[in-house]
């Protein structure tokens, strides 16, 4: 059984009198431990799919099951608890809390878990070391470069050891070398820890790091490619 199963997944928004349908009856399976890139033009439904998989949005129709849990059946509060346990989210613009240090940002998701202060400290430092930024643990986001901020954001995403890691253009705001470093880090997390990663990107080079690239257009899956193929698109 696949880790993520989408069947006829549809998401609609109402905007005035119009109904916008960024996802339209999508079927998709993602296996445990896979690294998947989502590509497609703006408005093709990439981020909507990512948000549905991450449990921060709900489908209008269809079924979405992650690790055997039908997300559509969960209440708002249960969905929040599920996210805390199973999802790590990396944003394009990092979205660190500006008044918290790198350490405090990474600690944020752990506050929801039944851990002692010492246990939290151990986990935060391990995560910061893994992303190579432990020496900046007491820096505020404004004191870090874009690449460093994204490393902190990745540490925050993995510190709870989530089932899936989702990234919405995680290199979209970075220069080439910082983007390369971030992708190398995501690759390590996938290879070493076996994390299931789903990532939205516009950059074929970034998509090439994934094992599988899915192309979306108008809310439907139009093409699927392996890593090398995806990079060539």
């Amino acid at each position: 059984m696949a880790l993520i199963e989408c069947r006829g997944l549809t998401r609609e928004y109402k905007k005035g009198d119009n109904i916008i349908r960024p996802l339209d009856g999508l079927d998709l399976d993602v296996e445990r431990g896979e690294f998947v890139a989502l590509m497609g033009p703006s408005g093709s439904g990439k981020t909507t799919l990512l948000n549905l998989v991450a449990g921060i949005d709900s489908p209008t129709r269809g079924e979405l099951t992650v690790d055997g849990v039908a997300l559509g059946s969960l209440s708002r509060n249960k969905l929040a608890a599920w996210r805390a346990q199973h999802v790590g989210y990396v944003f394009q613009l990092y979205n660190l809390v500006p008044v918290l240090t790198a350490y405090e940002n990474v600690e944020l998701p752990l506050l929801l878990h039944a851990l002692s202060r010492r246990e939290r400290h151990g986990r935060v430092m391990t995560a910061l070391q893994r992303v190579g930024i432990a020496d900046r643990h007491d820096h505020y986001p404004r004191q870090l470069s874009g690449g460093q901020e994204q490393r902190v954001a990745i540490a925050r995403a993995v510190v709870t050891d989530p089932t899936i890691l989702v990234g919405d253009e995680p290199t979209g705001d970075l220069d080439a070398s910082a983007a390369e470093a971030v992708m190398a880090l995501l690759g390590e997390l996938h290879d070493d820890l076996g994390k299931t990663i789903i990532m939205v990107t516009h950059d074929p080079k970034t998509a090439a790091c994934a094992e599988r690239t899915l192309h979306l257009e108008k809310g439907r899956l139009v093409r699927e490619a392996g890593a090398m193929e995806g990079a060539a698109v």
Partner: peptide, 15 residues
């Protein structure tokens, strides 16, 4: 607004 959305993404309940 964005910061509170991030908290909820991390698993903080709306309550």
């Amino acid at each position: 607004i964005g910061e509170h959305a991030v908290l909820q993404t991390l698993g903080y309940s709306s309550r």
